[in-house]
Write a protein that binds this DNA or RNA. Structure first.
Lengths: 117, 117
DNA sequence: TGAACGGTTGAATATTTGTTCATCTATTAA
DNA sequence: TTAATAGATGAACAAATATTCAACCGTTCA
């Protein structure tokens, strides 16, 4: 039997130290959610595109070779997470980044990838 | 009918500019994968814990109040993504961060959350 | 030896999640 | 008004994924 979750000989000081440094569950969840938003290929490509220009939905659809519906469905959570904002102009809705930190994070990951050959 | 993916009046210059700035599909996938690794509550908590101390699996299990099996299953992809490394010592396997960039990224996200009230 | 502990792993299950499809609203042009 | 375009959205489906459960391997200690 995988007699898991019984008392183990843990290293208490380490656990305490870690527990102390842990952000609140709420902050933790928020942070994980932002990472999750960037952790999908489609959404990350949208973000990368918006780092260059503001774009309307059908621009993005053309760029990513996806339906407008699929793009729109991915824009929704990004909007919700306040990572992007939009402005309406006639029939178009133009999206752009709403967060300077995002650029920094994305840049950092690509640096990371580049540096680890 | 959702007559999607028909010719739209796109903004060609914007699309071209974005296309030009896009990293290769491979780099893009790698970056998205790293974000995805951090985009899960359990894995992010593991990373946060390891930012303080190296820890063995049952320390993490105790800290996170999860079974060793569940923790181990999440350690595997993190190991695979080269975000953490391990050393064996007797019956224990101690995990620690394998990547300075990770700390920076995590820090940046929490800064972000803090700054947007 | 063998029993106990620490950890890993595969299979199964349950949940999340990305995309498609159809429909619907808003805006513009005929 | 009507038709066409741009976009959003809910439901349905398919694929990915987190956790549980059971079994397994390696190390230590009796």
């Amino acid at each position: 039997m995988g007699n898991d979750i019984l008392q183990n000989e843990v290293h208490l000081e380490n656990i305490k130290k870690a527990k102390k440094a842990m952000p609140s569950a709420e902050r933790m969840g928020d942070a994980a959610f932002i990472f999750k938003m960037l952790g999908d290929n489609t959404r990350l490509r949208i973000i990368m595109a918006l780092m260059e220009n503001e774009m309307c939905v059908c621009d993005l659809a053309e760029l990513l070779q996806m339906t407008k519906s699929a793009v729109s469905h991915q824009l929704a959570p990004l909007r919700n997470a306040k990572l992007i904002k939009y402005r309406k102009s006639g029939k178009n809705v133009f999206y752009s980044l709403d967060d300077a930190h995002v650029t920094g994070m994305v840049q950092m990951v690509f640096d990371h990838i580049a540096h680890q050959k």
